[in-house]
């Protein structure tokens, strides 16, 4: 069964960092470029994130994520530079459309912030095991019921995909055409919906019983399957991150 989580299971110092520290990193690295208002600082934050992606061995996974966002970025440039009224200095023209310099500067700021947010979050998503995220939250007081719900969200889509494949195999095994042009596929897809929903409902009932049979709703203190991630340098790293934030605020105010 494939997984919808983007987590890449590798060994690196980035993977070793605990989730809370990564949350602080996300917050600080998004806040600083916005507070500073400088494109250079933003680019610097992006560069650091890129280096961290490389160290973690997940740079390749970043390509489709960034490629998907290119469409958004392109529309930002076009709208900001060509269609916002009130700009004067024409930077270049494409036929009848003029791109203004002020607009381009503004667009570049937006793009840098956008990429920064994208990279900072993707680093965390790519290098943190979903179950670690949930366990961290549970250790910090999230109820185990909510934890289960969050974990299920990571599983439900691949589960649906695989049960769809199973049922479609059952259908074509008995002569229902599912291969061919779009029309055939759509026609084959519609009768899938009922069985997939029913089988997931039946699955839910069985799972609820299986959970109860193993005392899911008991009140006893819980233990965890994974050991709590003990990141050795968590305190210094967190302090450095927060210091950076403080410095950037002070620098901005002065």
């Amino acid at each position: 069964m494939q997984n919808i989580s983007l987590y890449v299971n590798k060994k690196s110092f980035v993977h070793d960092v605990d989730f809370l520290t990564k949350l602080i990193y996300i917050f600080v690295f998004i806040a600083i470029p916005i507070i500073s208002g400088s494109v250079i600082i933003g680019l610097l934050a992006i560069l650091i994130s890129l280096i961290l992606h490389t160290c973690a061995g997940v740079l390749k996974k970043l390509i489709p994520i960034v490629a998907l966002s290119l469409f958004v970025l392109l529309s930002v440039i076009i709208v900001q530079a060509a269609f916002i009224p009130g700009y004067h200095i024409v930077f270049f023209s494409l036929g009848p459309v003029h791109f203004y310099q002020e607009g381009l500067i503004h667009a570049s700021l937006i793009i840098v912030r956008f990429l920064d947010i994208l990279l900072v979050s993707s680093l965390t998503v790519l290098t943190t095991r979903p179950s670690d995220i949930v366990e961290t939250l549970q250790r910090k007081g999230l109820s185990h019921r909510m934890g289960y719900v969050i974990n299920s969200i990571f599983q439900i889509i691949p589960q649906m995909v695989s049960s769809m494949k199973t049922i479609s195999d059952a259908q074509r095994s008995r002569g229902m055409e599912t291969e061919g042009n779009l029309f055939v596929r759509v026609k084959a897809f519609l009768p899938l919906i009922g069985p997939v929903v029913i089988s997931s409902l039946v699955g839910t009932r069985e799972r609820a019983m299986a959970l109860e049979a193993r005392a899911f709703s008991a009140d006893a203190k819980r233990t965890y399957f994974h050991e709590e991630m003990k990141y050795r340098y968590k305190t210094p790293v967190r302090i450095i991150l927060l210091l950076l934030l403080v410095v950037s605020i002070i620098w901005r105010v002065l």
Partner: peptide
């Protein structure tokens, strides 16, 4: 296609749930 072949060859799956 599997569907066309189905008139000639039938398979009872290992797991009836499938």
């Amino acid at each position: 296609s599997v569907a066309k072949l189905a008139a000639h060859i039938g398979l009872v799956f290992q797991n009836p749930g499938d």
